[in-house]
Design a protein around this nucleic acid. Structure first.
Length: 471
DNA sequence: TGAAATGTTGGGGCG
DNA sequence: ACGCCCCAACATTTC
């Protein structure tokens, strides 16, 4: 009987896994493999929180495979080297994987396909996007830069076919190749914050479906509720999507079934599916414009007068630690540090403060989020930050500057969210809760504001206006 | 997926 | 009764 390596990456699920499914259809014995490349400093490097998430997702995946009498072979090293070894050790004739779309993975996979293609047949599939980036182009052949136009075209092309079911059996090889333990992958850091972070989460394919079910119960109110960080109005599916514990195809199909049963959820579901669209759009843009990983899509921004590390050093640290003196921002930054996640509305407010009021380069915020977000998706993160900074696709206009006090009053009117994450301010009256402290006001060690909103806003507007007038 | 500045309108207090 | 002013409430423009 022939043998196939199924190289799992960001598709850690049994159901709707085309690589696994097609390997099975060919009648191969299946050897599921995960390879962790610990090489530091690659451009698409996983953040610390995402590594912890990956650790727990792998544990769940290994358990699911074990329950079917199979195994998950774990290896630590450079992907090509490990795959070559595995091929020798197993005599596999075929290699299956689901595609990744970030520039670093694309380069790696292209190379691997070239080299390994001489020894075995390589099959790859789309398992993480509603549509592959290469297909959707404007009439003139250029990639879209505006979400709505792109989304319209995607919807016309049609949403993907029904997802694949989970296999009901997995033929195993007579002998397994060697692998290492999960702990030996080294995904958990030495210090213990992940314990606190993971108290907020349960990883894995099964958990993903529980989260989706919970979300759908309240989906009818999604379009409105999602803007209020004090309420559990968002799906919280992003980390599961990132590890591939669930696929967007599965979510869309499941939502469609739900909408047919519960017609009043129509609006909420449509808004939610559109958000899934943004995730796809982010991958699309990064695929077509790989340089935007570190550089602004709008090239005018290459000369933008961001402040220098010498100037912003202390402010950046205060922002990271949730000590800016703007309660809604600090609540968000602390939620991020403690739980590995931040409500999307608050992400925008916190990001706006960094890029606009503090004039700190968006890359600094992007790096911090990438390192601390349990759902850190390279493409989505870069798109979001460039959107806020005003230099990305379909970007917020440069003059759109969030006022963290007004935003908080509007979206956290009763102060639930701020009080949850900024305990120093719990006793402060709601009427003042979202205001920065005035001189002489003392609430524990809560700091005075890191910037003057009015003056910093004026400064940002002047910088952006000047940039716009050049060229 | 803003906010602030500026403009307009209309009701009510008051001489 | 009338005009004037004030200003909230809303609309429009500008950054």
């Amino acid at each position: 009987m022939s043998r196939a390596l199924v190289w799992l990456r960001q598709d850690l699920r049994l159901a709707d896994n085309p690589a696994l499914w097609h390997a099975l259809q060919q009648g191969h014995e299946i050897i599921p493999v995960f390879i962790h490349d610990p090489t530091p400093d690659t451009a698409g490097r996983l953040g610390a929180a995402s590594q912890v998430w990956l650790h727990h997702t792998l544990a769940a995946m290994a358990q699911s495979l074990a329950a079917m009498g199979s195994r998950l072979i774990l290896r630590r090293g450079e992907a090509l080297t490990e795959l070559v070894q595995l091929q020798t050790q197993t005599g596999a004739q075929a290699l299956y994987w689901n595609r990744c779309y970030d520039p670093v993975s694309v380069a790696r996979d292209t190379h691997i396909k070239q080299v390994l293609g001489r020894q075995l047949t390589v099959h790859s599939f789309n398992a993480s996007l509603l549509h592959e980036p290469v297909r959707l182009l404007k009439a003139d052949g250029a990639p879209y830069r505006v979400f709505t136009a792109w989304w319209k075209t995607l919807l016309q092309a049609g949403l993907p076919a029904r997802p694949l079911p989970a296999p009901d059996r997995l033929p195993v090889p007579a002998e397994w190749p060697p692998g290492c333990t999960l702990a030996a992958l080294g995904l958990l850091p030495a210090h213990h914050w992940p314990v606190g972070m993971m108290a907020h989460w349960k990883a894995g394919e099964q958990a993903a479906w529980q989260v989706l079910d919970r979300f759908l119960e309240a989906a009818a109110g999604y379009a409105v509720q999602r803007d209020f960080p004090g309420q559990a109005g968002t799906s919280c599916l992003s980390p599961y999507l990132h590890s591939g514990s669930i696929s967007p195809q599965q979510i869309v199909a499941y939502c469609e079934d739900f909408r047919n049963r519960v017609p009043q959820a129509e609006t909420g579901i449509a808004a939610f599916v559109r958000e899934l669209g943004w995730r796809d759009f982010a991958a699309y843009l990064l695929w077509h414009f790989p340089r935007t990983l570190e550089k602004p899509l709008d090239t005018r921004f290459e000369t933008f007068p961001w402040s220098t590390p010498d100037e912003y050093g202390a402010s950046l640290q205060r922002w990271q630690r949730g000590m800016t003196g703007f309660p809604i921002v600090d609540a968000g930054m602390r939620q991020l540090w403690q739980s590995g996640w931040m409500h999307n509305r608050v992400r925008m407010i916190a990001a706006s403060l960094l890029c606009k009021n503090l004039l700190i380069p968006w890359q600094q915020g992007e790096h911090w989020f990438r390192d601390t977000l349990v759902d850190a998706d390279l493409a989505s993160n870069v798109l979001g930050w460039q959107w806020v900074a005003g230099c990305g696709a379909d970007a917020a206009p440069y003059f759109r500057i969030f006022n963290p006090v007004l935003q908080a009053q509007k979206f956290d009117p009763d102060g639930t969210y701020v009080r949850r994450w900024v305990p120093e301010l719990r006793e402060r009256p709601v009427s003042l809760l979202h205001q920065p402290l005035g001189a002489g006001e003392v609430y524990g060690a809560y700091p005075l504001p890191v910037a003057d909103l009015k003056a910093s806003r004026q400064r940002a507007l002047a910088c952006f206006a000047r940039m716009k007038s050049v060229r």
